[in-house]
Design a protein around this nucleic acid. Structure first.
Lengths: 186, 186
DNA sequence: AGAAACATGTAACCAGTTACATGATTAC
DNA sequence: GTAATCATGTAACTGGTTACATGTTTCT
């Protein structure tokens, strides 16, 4: 039930609407958790039933009404409880790796193109991360909350970097006849 | 439907039973795809209905009968078709990262312990990977199928390494007062 | 005597995805 | 006018997890 707890963490900062929470997910949560608005609204309903959050309908000018949720004491308690539980590493399920396993039976050129596309994708994300990193570095003496966000960004950077590195290595191999350079040192 | 296609790739090598496929998943597929036996048996049923695989019941001495599945022409065609589709990066959903975001509101010592445990876990996996890497290096001139497996192992190594690196960095920060060393160079 | 490996399945549940559905305001 | 942003929801489907269920052989 980590989606619920991710939402609780967001609401620890300040009360927010489903739409607002969604936006926060797109900002800094994006690297390690994502959820569609449908999922968030459904989860918010469940969490309200549990008593972890309580809604207030806020009328707005020029905008539709919004339902702003605030974390309750019960919600805070639940988050605390969840934080004492050990986390388990998430199982990886990666299509591209299955594609690699299928490599011996497939067209080499097609595979190279696929890996190249992925390399570009992760390179782009890496650059985006680095830009955000610069923002953090420009604002020293940030509040604690921001420092922890920075740690997440660091995870994102290392993650994207490891993808780019792997793609580069694989591309070199795939382009060599019979993958002959496979055991050369990196 | 990548589970089905992962199974198809396994069956490209040789016909296999549900149990055998499960074992293959535990060996080299484990780094990027995993499935319980329940899931595999269910999927095999669906795939048989689709005509991608065909079963033969094999009686064995001292062991229960097994249902050995072989890939059909239709299955081979489907795998080929799937391989022309572009892959999309898998969304990351990582509990530990949510825990980090909750960091500002939680006990520091608890968080350090959690990260330390994860560091140990990934370090262990990294060492396992490196052992298997050595096996590949000791057997040069491997068949193509093995060379592609090696590429997957490389992904696993870079993946685990990036986890260990990140944990190390985070631990150093968490142990410094107010995360003061946060912007020091890595 | 008990655990591990071999072997296959059903049923219920939970979480994530996709499609459908509506409607105002603001910026280009 | 058209897209983007703000704002909230329902319904059906798919895929993954957990629990239940059975039975043999081999190794310690």
């Amino acid at each position: 039930m980590t989606l619920a707890h991710t939402i609780l963490v967001v609401l620890m900062g300040e009360p927010n609407s489903g739409y607002g929470i969604r936006s926060r997910f797109e900002e800094d949560v994006q690297f390690f958790w994502q959820a569609s608005h449908q999922q968030i609204y459904r989860e918010l309903g469940k969490m309200e039933n549990q008593g972890w959050i309580s809604p207030t309908v806020v009328a707005q000018e020029g905008k539709p009404d919004k339902k702003v949720y605030a974390i309750t004491d019960s919600g805070r308690q639940e988050l605390l409880r969840w934080c004492t539980e050990p986390t388990a590493p998430t199982a990886i399920r990666e299509d591209l790796m299955v594609r690699i396993l299928a490599g011996p039976y497939m067209d080499r050129g097609m595979l190279i193109e696929e890996v190249q596309d992925r390399r570009d994708f992760h390179q782009q994300r890496l650059e985006d991360c680095r830009e955000r990193e610069q923002w953090f570095r420009d604002h020293s003496d940030l509040p604690l909350v921001e420092k922890f966000r920075y740690l997440n960004l660091q995870r994102g950077i290392l993650f994207e970097k490891s993808w780019v590195d792997w793609c580069d290595r694989v591309l070199e191999l795939l382009r060599s006849p019979d993958l002959s350079t496979i055991f050369e040192e990196s």
